[in-house]
Design a protein around this nucleic acid. Structure first.
Lengths: 339, 339
DNA sequence: GGTCGCCTTGACAAGGTTGTCATGGCCTGT
DNA sequence: ACAGGCCATGACAACCTTGTCAAGGCGACC
């Protein structure tokens, strides 16, 4: 384990100039196959690894991809990291994570880090992906970025998202197919774009199946357990109850389950409950929650791919690329036939 | 936002040599207060940020701290990152996250990354912190590291951990104070060091309060929801039931709650349930879980501190430093007076 | 008054890689 | 046989900062 093997050592051993070694390493053309092999042999035998600092100082790339987030669910962050790493590692890139505090002075947090690190690209998760201040700094520094599930300003940059409308539609259709006609819905936080899309999917499915959406069957939630709990208390009060509740995320669905449990309503015999997101909590309640799984890892991998392939770079004129990924309807035990 | 402000620009503007600017930036001594001010003014007005690549190429530091993990709970990973960042950011360090696949060839994953990145230190989370192969590579490369809650080989490196024995002791004492005498315990995964420590704390508390630990009141679990569920099915079968169950992590405690729920045993009226770890799931069940909170963020911050302060560097002879942090007993609704 | 030593500063090299440009060999077309 | 062009390769500068060492200024001490 000699601490410092440099490109010069490799060049000496394989009898070529350092530039040729560089060419081999970077898979540049114009190297004889014979020479290439000799260099690669030397690299292997010396266990040589190019020094990333020198590399990024000399060249343009930093071999770093940033992941910015601000306090979303831990499971989400972890999945994003895993998905992004998968794509990055094969190309010698590394992931730098930067929690942001949107409540504070984000420019002050982002600008210096961008200037110092000169990352090759950044992946933005909600809610940071809709923070105009962050986007402005990135644009100013000329750092390409991809947004995950962005809400507004879709033309502004490359992005990756899931089809929330279709997913909510399918979940609603699933409930309808089980015989439910009286399906309540708990909306998500109004500031969150996905909240509206999910409601749209629900409303569309109801309409297309000839079912009415009663006003008193739609409750406002805020994506939190507590808000789901409170919404359910209202929805389930009295005798005139819906036979199913579709909460537009899992935390709220768990709130619904807690209320049902308290009221001694059997799930799914008396009440079907559906969630959205497939958080870890969904498998940890009993009965386990029927929900929609976002392909977070795949989305992050797609984002990394857009960055590494260079597709995310803003070209004047052409609109930035985007990817729309498939979701999974995860049917577990919390939904069943209507009574 | 001029893309490239270098140290030369600052030097020119403030009328000193680049070396003096460097001295000011690195808070080196031997700069007149007057000069220092002038330089800082120039830095501010040009909005200059030193280039990290050049910096680490010229100097010895890379300004990067690695965080290695292998598939622990997302909440844990996120907390570690937040805790570490807090300490790193003020000193201009950044966090590089590297998920490892312990099942595969870890050397192949770690060695190249260490050689290319030359990080200044690494934080290891369980179970990676007990992987001899990873430690060997780190030692060979001479990269200082701090382990979080390590299990074995405590003298080998700097580490930070929580007092699991004391925490389990206090939780048990809490139940005893509520009047419980027949307290069951669900053990954790036998390969996980904390599992034994937690059991020891429970056993010690029982013994010191003159309570017997019946063999059939101790069940083997594996830290998973399912294993907790199955253990509870056995513990709660029949009429001769314990009045409280202390599961040595939250996932298992949630399994216990699910069984209690199914058997229509009211928590906490008929059965008290206690967990350990304060995972997000603990607040999402009803009633909310009484548990022990590990100060993960504080532990990660302490680890970062050991690294940045240089204390983690292995000195010949002297044993590596360690920190033992306090825990919090989080009393919620799942524990109550004994019947 | 001279010497010593400390504080402050600057000139220059070093650090490892990539980019630019030049060089020489070989092939192609005439 | 020769001009022109392409391929393979190398020499050297550039990237930006820190480390080393030397030098100048100034006060203190003998």
């Amino acid at each position: 384990m000699n601490a410092k093997v440099t490109i010069h050592d490799v060049a000496r051993l394989s009898g070529v100039s350092i530039k040729t070694v560089s060419r081999v390493l970077n898979r540049e053309p114009n190297v004889k196959a014979d020479t290439r092999d000799r260099v690669q042999e030397a690299v292997a035998s010396l266990n040589y690894r190019p020094n990333i600092s020198a590399r990024s100082l000399a060249g343009s790339k930093a071999y770093l991809i940033g992941v910015f987030f601000d306090n979303p669910s831990p499971a989400y962050v972890t999945d994003v990291q895993l998905g992004a790493i998968g794509r990055c590692r094969t190309e010698g890139y590394h992931l730098i994570v930067e929690p942001l505090d949107s409540a504070g002075d984000v420019e002050e947090q982002v600008a210096p880090m961008l200037a110092t690190l000169r990352m090759d690209g950044v992946i933005l998760t909600p809610p940071v992906c809709d923070d105009a201040r962050v986007l402005a700094v990135l644009d100013a520094e000329g750092v390409p970025y991809v947004r995950l599930s962005p809400d507004k300003d879709l033309d502004r940059s490359a992005y990756v998202r899931m089809d929330d409308v279709a997913a909510a539609y399918e979940m609603t259709a699933h409930l309808i197919k089980l015989g439910h006609k009286d399906i309540a819905f708990i909306k998500g936080h109004p500031d969150h774009g996905a909240a509206h899309l999910r409601y749209d999917g629900y409303a569309k499915a109801m309409a297309e199946h000839g079912l009415a959406v009663r006003d008193d069957r739609v409750a406002q939630g805020y994506f939190s357990f507590r808000s789901g709990f409170e919404a359910a208390e209202v929805l389930l009060a009295g005798e005139d109850r819906p036979t199913a509740i579709f909460a537009s995320n899992d935390d709220m669905a768990l709130g619904v389950m807690a209320v049902a449990n308290r009221l001694r309503l059997n799930v799914p015999e008396t009440l079907s409950v559906a969630g959205f997101d497939d958080t870890p909590g969904a498998k940890v309640v009993w009965p386990q929650l029927t929900t929609v799984r976002q392909p977070i890892q795949a989305m992050a991998a797609a984002a990394a791919d857009l960055l590494l392939s260079g597709a995310a770079r803003v070209d004047e004129g052409s609109s930035p690329p985007s990817r729309l990924l498939d979701f999974d309807l995860v049917v577990r035990e919390s939904t069943g036939p209507a009574v």
